[in-house]
Design a protein around this nucleic acid. Sequence first.
RNA 1: UCCUCGGUAGCUCAACAGGCAGAGCGGCCGGCUGUUAACCGGUUGGUUGCAGGUUCGAGUCCUGCCCGGGGAGCCA
Length: 431
Amino acid sequence: MTKWVYIREIGEYVGQEVTLKGWVYNRTDKGKLQFLVIRDGTGFIQAVAFQKELPAEVFQRAASLTQESSVVVTGIVRADPRAPGGYELGITNLEIIQLVQDYPIALKEHGVEFLMANRHLWIRTKRQHAILMVRVEVIRAIRDWLDSHGFVNMDTPILTPAACEGTTTLFETDYFGEPAYLTQSGQLYNEANIMAFGRVYCFGPTFRAEKSKTRRHLTEFWMVEPEIAFCDLYDLMEVEEQFVSYIVQRVLERRARELEVLERDTSRLAKVEPPFPRLSYDGAVELLRKQGFDFRWGEDFGAPHETAISDQFEKPVFVHHYPTQCKAFYMQPEPGRPEVCRSVDLLAPEGYGEIIGGGERIADYELLEQRIREHNLPREAYEWYLDLRRYGTVPHAGFGLGVERTVSWLTGIHHLREAIPFPRMLERIYP
RNA sequence: UCCUCGGUAGCUCAACAGGCAGAGCGGCCGGCUGUUAACCGGUUGGUUGCAGGUUCGAGUCCUGCCCGGGGAGCCA
């Protein structure tokens, strides 16, 4: 029995006979010569079967293979410039685990509806595999950077008793006869956690029952939310630009092959290093008006506005000091100018929009209590949150980074439904 | 919720002004020792989203419904 190896490490076995276990991605029939593309989850490799060099039944099996049939292939690894990837396997034996009939997805063009209905199979294709491996790297980079910069992972509940931010729609569920809601953010709990642990982050799925039907929205998406005690708006922006730059450079370094499969132009990504440009909301409004937008001060930016702003910069751009009225109740107002608050969003280049939202939180008990009243929030649900300002309050800040939007930007894909294995969207919960 | 585009073979799409429902891919059969979503020849394949209506005749026109794409608002 020859050694079972993974395609990822095939280059280490040139000249040796090895065994691969995987699936037939495609077959090209040349009569007395068969080209098989085998995938095993770690990569793709061409395997070649010559009729002359094989027992008749082995060649016959190779010639009978259909797309996505599961196989165990043994052969000699050789470097060959004619093979995609530079290596190929000269087949010496082949066992079929299952011969597949009528695999639905051809390696041709398909429509969105068909592909989404077959998402469980679509993820096997090269392009989807590459996108999801970039996602893997983004998530690893997030954890590595935070873990090595004094943050501790302190996860927050998914089932919550009340809205974190009262405005957006919540998914309601039954909690032993009481209504409970799927979380929209772990931030409020993070604020409790920093008073115990200093620097924390939570990382998990987030749910928004918004009836949004755009390329930038999912109803279930993943968000990492760091929160820092003794931190103001300006400290926060420095953390964010270090963090995002690390993620980008790490993906460029370790997922170059995947970005090549995706034909991503990486020249702009390579420039993503601190510092990022900083633009106040006032400055952004001025910039928009210069470009001919009829924009009223006090409104939040829509997608076309975000794109117009980020197009002016090569790197991601911070927009800070939004009007207090368009941000959440806990945002710290700017001293001496209460109509704006110490919030900051990070807009990705190339039209990928807001990937981070965050800011400095209100530390003062009286002011926070007043805001809860102004926003008509149920006081009793926030009693524990007010305790954080009663017992040792400190200036603090935090942010949330959307994983799928970040992956979409880095991979250059058009729609973020491809940035998660099984997207949950409006009117779609299958498969 | 609103605006907009669409639904025809397993898939991607044609079908003029209402007049025999077609092609490519896939599948199947045959050919080829260097293919890269191979190529060549043959062949198979249809409740035109659903329900009504107009008409000698409807994929095509009308009404309602269902499903999907793109966008807006809101947000990461």
